[in-house]
């Protein structure tokens, strides 16, 4: 007897991925090379095996991503034989469609939205699969698994479709699209435990390494590239750090860490007294920072 036991979160995510593939004509998986989207890729492999993952990957590249992540992104897509579409925020800046922020806290995080919406229109994607989780942030906690967006990408947070049982309603009008979140109910620890259990490879910046950094507002910023604005009096030093999220370099701070393996990372997260997005300056802009970005089409 070889009995398959249930893993609730894994089965739920696979179920959702299959619903996306069945209900939509042109889905795409938003792949950033971060741990959540890497987890999504593994779940998609499981959902459709022995067939290939039935949708391409899309990455909106701010041009400020960690080089380790970009290298990892390209390699994984190649190994799986999946089409990787990359669209660059830089192109919109060059075309004058968006204006880059300036100053101490300048970030291209907000500018990603415009590029994402352009790509959705260019390819006619009707569903974008994302690795967002409800435990990340309180506006995310309110979002549905199938979240309908208007043709301007807008999220109508007060009029969301009810989601009962496992039933997902992906019916939309032409021009609308749906953001689909298969790991909505996972926590950061669930993701890490899964990566450990499945022995999934992740980019090196998630592990503790020596890095040139500087301190500002009690947070640790990478000084290895010219991306993050650094004032002259902000001194560069070398520290043992790792990143808990791999967003844009300009809005992702590092944490002090000596976790050099997955099991040590899992332990560190269990013991941590700071939340994952505590090191994301993009959420700290205001109490409603995430909700505002989502209304405008942020993923």
């Amino acid at each position: 007897m070889n009995e398959l036991r249930v893993n609730t979160l894994e089965s739920e995510a696979i179920y959702i991925l299959r619903e996306v593939a069945a209900q939509f004509e042109k889905p795409v998986l938003l792949f950033s090379g971060g741990k959540d989207s890497i987890t999504l890729v593994r779940l998609a492999q499981k959902a459709f095996w022995p067939a290939k993952i039935p949708f391409p990957f899309l990455h909106v590249d701010t041009g400020h991503n960690f080089p380790e992540t970009i290298e990892f992104r390209d390699r994984l897509a190649k190994e799986l034989g999946i089409d990787l579409i990359v669209r660059n925020v830089q192109d919109n800046i060059d075309a004058g469609k968006v204006v880059e922020e300036t100053g101490k806290y300048a970030s291209r995080n907000m500018l990603q939205t415009e590029t994402l919406l352009d790509a959705i229109e260019e390819f006619g994607f009707d569903a974008c699969i994302g690795g967002a989780r409800r435990d990340e942030e309180k506006a995310r906690a309110k979002e549905r698994i199938f979240s309908v967006r208007s043709d301007f990408g807008e999220w109508d947070e007060k009029n969301q479709r009810p989601e009962l049982f496992d039933l997902l309603n992906g019916k939309i009008e032409l021009g609308q699209n749906v953001r689909c979140f298969p790991i909505s109910n996972w926590t950061e620890l669930d993701v890490w435990s899964y990566i450990e259990r499945e022995n999934i490879e992740i980019p090196s910046i998630y592990f503790a390494h020596k890095r040139k950094v500087f301190l500002r507002d009690g947070m640790i910023w990478s000084a290895e590239d010219d991306v993050v604005y650094r004032a002259e009096d902000e001194e560069v030093q070398e520290m043992m750090v790792r990143f808990r999220t791999v967003g844009d370099m300009s809005c992702t701070a590092a944490v002090l860490s000596d976790a050099v393996s997955i099991s040590k990372v899992v332990q560190e997260i269990r013991d941590s007294s700071i939340s994952e997005r505590g090191a994301r300056i993009d959420d700290k802009r205001s109490e409603a920072a995430m909700e505002k970005r989502k209304q405008q089409g942020y993923f």
């Binding site: 007897m1 070889n2 009995e3 036991r5 609730t8 739920e12 499981k46």
Partner: peptide, 14 residues
Amino acid sequence: FFDKKYSVAERGTS
């Protein structure tokens, strides 16, 4: 379930 074969599947499994 993925690339493995099982003789029995419990309820709740995809």
